[in-house]
Design a protein around this nucleic acid. Structure first.
Length: 363
DNA sequence: GGATGCGGGCTCC
DNA sequence: GGAGCCCGCATCC
């Protein structure tokens, strides 16, 4: 018997992705989980862009299950250096396997960027010797997700990281001001300390929002947007849950119709600290995150929207764009808007990268 | 070029 | 029949 760890606090958590009838009235939907592991289930809003795209931090390839209603994906594992070398920043080399078979073969014929050793694909065998499988099913306003198996390998780069690294290799190395790597150290340090009060928590959150100084970077716009998305996604998930103006219906209705709630007590499979710590860049949070999330959830009503695992934060900026577009129509200036519906801390978030927010806001 | 989704077909149990 | 896998094709970015 496979263990079942229902994540949703919804009624009828005993559903299975193959059920003819799935729960139609979940009490709450889940935040998108970037690193689903073990035998978990989620119910996402059909407006969740990441769920729509069936995204995952794991490298998942499409698998035909001869059921057009249920999309099945199986894990490709992770690409490692045969010399088990470490990157200059001390982290292990865990590359994201290409989804395309040809690309993956080509990828394996390449050499490690750090030691020139060969690259070795560690297959996922976490589901009874077979790869972990993810299932996606769209039903009405919900997207049902189920995963079977426990990943028995380190986390690969996220799709975002993989794309960024590719871009970085094409162009000259990008310089990140307060880069994610640096932030990681700072984050780790900050998280080891006790959070004394909500104000401290606020500051910590703000300090840990990645700040990209694109002025020093010579990278493609798409990568800039990716990074910005990541940054703003963190911002979005942190600051908007209790902010009234952002819960108003928006033109696209994408953001507002997304009554997702976090499930910070969900049993995410952080089974191996080394793996988690080794995952590069965006993997900002490690085992402390759950304590962190729990603390925020319990202590800070203000932070009730921030119980989403930061590690699992997605990089979907569309909702924010729409929100701003909507708000912008009502109020001519961002400043006025932020003063009107955000706390000082929240409004400060949008001064972090004003240059790169502006083009979007002006749309 | 690569990611993604779909579907035919094969093998194994 | 279910599950896993391979392959080709189409579409999108």
């Amino acid at each position: 018997m496979e263990p079942e760890v229902p994540l949703s606090k919804n009624k009828g958590v005993n559903w299975d992705i193959n059920d003819i009838k799935l729960p139609q009235d979940p009490e709450q939907m889940d935040w998108f989980q970037e690193w689903p592991d073990s035998y978990v289930k989620h119910i996402y809003s059909s407006s969740d862009r990441n769920a729509q795209r069936h995204l995952s931090g794991w490298a998942m390839r499409n698998t035909n299950n001869h059921n057009s209603r249920i999309l099945k994906k199986s894990c490709l594992g992770v690409l490692v250096c045969s010399n088990d070398c470490t990157a200059p920043d001390g982290r292990k080399t865990y590359l994201r396997p290409a989804i395309c078979d040809k690309a993956r073969q080509k990828q394996q014929s390449k050499h490690c960027a750090y030691c020139n050793g060969s690259l070795k694909l560690i297959s996922c065998r976490g589901h009874g010797g077979f790869p972990v499988t993810n299932f996606w099913r769209h039903e009405g306003p919900y997207i049902y997700f189920q995963t079977k198996g426990v990943h028995d390998h380190p986390k690969p780069e996220t799709k975002f990281e993989s794309e960024t690294n590719k871009t970085r290799h094409k162009k000259r190395p990008a310089i990140l001001s307060n880069s994610l790597g640096l932030k990681r150290t700072k984050t780790d340090e900050s998280l080891t300390g006790e959070m004394h009060n909500q104000e401290n928590q606020t500051n910590e959150v703000l300090n840990n929002i990645p700040f990209y100084d694109f002025n020093d970077m010579d990278i493609e716009q798409s990568s800039v947007e990716n990074m910005l998305n990541n940054c703003l996604s963190m911002t979005k998930n942190y600051s908007f849950g209790k902010t009234s103006c952002f819960t108003e219906p928006l033109s696209d209705a994408e953001w507002s119709k997304n009554p997702r709630r976090s499930n910070q007590y969900e049993s995410e499979g952080y089974s191996d600290h080394e793996w988690t710590n080794s995952a590069p860049n965006v993997d900002l949070w490690n085992e402390d995150e759950q304590t962190w999330n729990k603390t925020l959830f319990v202590k800070g009503q203000h932070f009730s929207s921030y119980t989403q695992s930061l590690e699992n934060l997605c990089w979907d900026i569309t909702s924010l764009h729409n929100c701003y577009s909507s708000v912008g129509q009502q109020n001519p200036t961002l400043e006025a808007t932020t003063k009107g519906c955000m706390s000082q801390e929240e409004s400060n978030l949008f001064r972090y990268s004003p240059t790169y927010l502006s083009p979007t806001l002006s749309k």
